[in-house]
Amino acid sequence: MSFRIRIPSIWRAKRFLYRLEGYRCSRCGEFHTHSRYVCRRCRSRELTLERLPTRVRLVDYTVVHQATRNNEDNLPFIVGLVETPDGVKILGQITDCEPEDLAPGMELETTFRRIGVDGDANIIVYGYKFRPEIH
């Protein structure tokens, strides 16, 4: 049995996955990673395309030591929960550092990376990751 995703699912998510662009409710401010007609919090229909800031704050993270097929090559890897200055929380892998370099509250920047390969044809999936700022 194959559990891989297909190209359309990546295509539908490309705005957010490639550019961190989502839909902000102009009435209540709720941010959505997918295109929506109605705000999930206040039911407003006024949603506008917006790009998230590239600098975020690390809230929480874990280091994954046992993973499934599509991520086995990268073990161990870090997955973090981060927060933008206006409070949007998103998940993502953290790269270019060791777990010891991280602490909750520190600033991270976004970077565009190869996330993995998908399906029998090994289609390369790209997307955002986070990394400590390089000084």
Partner: peptide
């Protein structure tokens, strides 16, 4: 599935 497991490898 899509936003946690597939893209970020969260188990």
């Amino acid at each position: 599935f899509f936003w946690e497991f597939e893209q970020f490898g969260l188990t």
